[in-house]
Design a protein around this nucleic acid. Structure first.
Lengths: 297, 297
DNA sequence: TCGCCTGATAGAGGAAACCTATCAAACAAC
DNA sequence: GTTGTTTGATAGGTTTCCTCTATCAGGCGA
């Protein structure tokens, strides 16, 4: 039964019988039969079928909700038992927004010190994807903005507060300033994240709020790409202060506070709001609370 | 997998492999194998075995908690689907304390008017059993005191407030009074519920509080038995006002308010605190809120 | 010591789950 | 209009695992 529910989750994720079957490690006929059997035992059609996958019926959507819950609980049970058997062990799947990637180490390092048998998988994702994957049980926890866009069925643990810096060469325009305004920053050609990233939307909003019309000269979904451009001294960007700090900017690159307004956004850990959580996630939440203490400004 | 978890729940309920197997409709070797397989896939012993069932291991207790949750969710899923298919239908399993039994009709009657395809099973149970069966998914909802002893993992919806009456013949001692005190009531030979009932404990506490030492001349776990004795006019009892009213006392039997203090206890519907609830239970909760309005004093 | 109760074990029959191979419908490209 | 491709359903065969009956072994009380 539970494996059939897993089939359904995979189908919702992949929107495709064949790929869902692959994801479950079975063949397509097996997955088809599993879904069909589920429909038979429940007595309703779950999937709209034409010549191809056409989404779920309304009953299917409801069953999907339950399936998420049941599958998640079953996994938690297994995990809790292994934790009871030989301490915290296993794999913790995380996803973080690009601007928070460099801060993940502040969380994983003390966690690993406490629980050396836990392995990590960390994916770079935009904020919507983080929440989506959390919903779909594809990750155990995420790191994203917690004070801006709605979180849905997730619980947030604030980690640190993000302030913004104009990162540019001391020799470039504005490079000699102790602080710049958003209006001034809007005049500089910038490297920014792509618009699917919340950080980009935040910065655009701030620039527009100061009367600017941001037309970035370069955009990417990779922080490493932006950072390497800035390091040449020929490009400028706006990034969170902690990120610039964590990446270690060297002369002549400077990170100049941007004021008027001095914008602040909170980044935090998000975990499923479900109770009780798995031991791995519970430990991560505990660690996040500790880390938040040390990162307080 | 889920059927194996059901095996585990049955085992917890029956404390006996053979009876648990019966309850699940399988043979004893099948249930044994199921539990063993569960132990194997989880990699821990769940049950302490000697020559007979000796309870669960600590890991077993944890797994049991998850099993309750998962099995309950799976049932809820099935029920929700049938509700989507052809409206509210199925069986609602209730348990009520004896003093509330006569009030159950106030809940089931309007419920049935709204949802004619729902059938009921109502068991008379003491308050501890009500909560225990709620925990173990043996009932969908209970009716018991909600303001006195701890409810555990249950959610309460108050239904009505219980006040106490001395029920006795007009010709018996105190039978002519407009009201009596608890101290006076303690002087009369009484028919009361057995001490496992919370109502008995409440009344004993009140009698003792007034300096009395209750030694009931007759005790039973059946309200019908107590009531039929009182109807002869030869016996007296203390019962909730609404109960006396619902049962319809005729001359010369009178229900005399007991004062000093005018004790009040709240009786309500209790349902699993789990969210979301099944559609049948959700409808029952809605009905309970409506009924509580009409019963307000 | 003898039943009796309880749960484990063995072996057989049957159901189901899964796989490979193939098919039919829809759709796009030419 | 034809052809190729994609997608999910279907058929048939193998294997796995599930459940049953029958039996066994250890405790426990009489």
């Amino acid at each position: 039964m539970i494996d059939k529910l897993e089939f359904l989750l995979a189908l919702a994720r992949e929107q495709h019988f064949g790929r869902a079957a692959d994801a479950c490690g079975v063949t397509q006929p097996t997955l088809s039969a599993g879904v069909k059997q589920l429909e038979q035992t429940l007595g309703v059609l779950l999937v709209n079928r034409g010549s191809r996958f056409q989404g779920f019926t309304s009953e299917g959507e409801r069953v999907l909700e339950w399936a998420r819950r049941i599958v998640s609980d079953a996994r938690s049970m297994r995990q809790e038992v292994t934790a009871l058997k030989r301490g915290l062990a296993g794999r913790l799947r995380l996803a973080a927004i690009p601007t928070a990637l460099a801060m993940v180490a502040a969380l994983t390092t003390p966690y690993r010190a406490r629980h050396p048998n836990v392995r990590f998988t960390v994916m770079s994702r935009n904020s919507l994807e983080v929440l989506g994957q959390l919903e779909n049980l594809e990750i155990d926890a995420g790191i994203t903005y917690v004070d801006n866009e709605p979180l849905g069925r997730a619980r947030a643990i604030p980690l640190y507060r993000e302030r913004y810096r104009l990162v540019t060469s001391a020799r470039a325009p504005l490079g000699d300033r102790a602080s710049v305004t958003w209006a001034e920053a809007a005049q500089v050609p910038l490297c920014l994240l792509t618009p699917d990233m919340q950080n980009r939307r935040i910065i655009e909003r701030l620039l527009r709020g100061a009367g600017g019309d941001p037309q970035p000269t370069l955009e990417s979904n990779s922080m490493i790409l932006l950072f390497s451009h800035v390091r040449t001294g020929q490009w400028a960007s706006i990034m969170p202060a902690r990120l610039a700090q964590a990446l270690g900017l060297a002369e002549p690159i400077r990170a100049i506070p941007i004021v008027e307004p001095e914008a602040v956004h909170t980044v935090g850990l998000v975990v499923p709001s479900r109770e009780p959580t798995t031991p791995l996630v519970a430990a991560l939440v505990a660690e996040a609370r500790r880390v938040a203490q040390t990162l307080e400004d």
